[in-house]
Amino acid sequence: MAEAVTTRQFTPKAGCPRCTALDTARRRARATHDRSAETDARVLIKKHMGGEHGTVLEAGWT
Rank of each mutant, 00 (worst) to 15 (best):
D34S: 07
T6V: 12
S36H: 12
A21E: 12
C19H: 02
R8F: 02
A2W: 03
S36D: 12
L22M: 06
A14C: 00
H33A: 15
A29R: 11
C16Q: 08
R18T: 15
G51C: 04
A59P: 13
D23S: 14
C19G: 04
A31W: 00
D34V: 10
T6A: 08
R26K: 15
D34Y: 05
L22K: 05
H53D: 06
R30W: 00
E3Q: 10
R35Y: 07
P12F: 03
G60H: 03
T39M: 11
G54Q: 02
T11W: 00
D23T: 06
E58M: 10
G51V: 01
R42M: 14
T39D: 03
L57P: 04
K13F: 05
A21M: 06
K47G: 12
E38D: 07
A25W: 02
E58H: 03
E58L: 14
T20C: 01
L57G: 06
A29D: 02
T11Y: 00
R28F: 07
E52T: 15
Q9F: 04
A29I: 07
R42P: 07
R28D: 12
L44Q: 15
R18Q: 14
T6E: 11
C16V: 08
A37K: 13
W61E: 07
A2G: 06
G60K: 09
G15R: 04
D23N: 15
T55E: 03
K13N: 03
M49K: 12
T39E: 11
W61V: 13
T24W: 00
W61T: 08
A2E: 08
P17F: 03
F10S: 10
R27M: 11
G54N: 07
A59T: 11
T20G: 01
H33M: 10
A41S: 12
A29S: 14
L44R: 13
T32K: 11
L44P: 04
A29W: 01
P17V: 08
E58T: 08
S36L: 04
R42F: 03
T6Y: 13
D40R: 14
A2H: 09
R18Y: 02
P17N: 05
F10H: 14
A14I: 02
D40Y: 01
R42I: 08
E52A: 14
T6C: 05
L44T: 06
A37Q: 09
P12I: 04
T32Q: 05
R35H: 13
V5I: 10
C16I: 08
L57V: 06
D34G: 11
L44M: 13
R28Q: 13
Q9L: 10
T24A: 15
H48R: 05
E38S: 15
A31P: 07
A21Y: 00
L22D: 01
D23Q: 11
T6I: 07
H33D: 09
T7H: 04
T11M: 09
V5P: 02
L44F: 02
A14W: 00
E52D: 09
G50F: 01
A37R: 10
P12M: 05
E58D: 14
L22A: 08
P12Y: 00
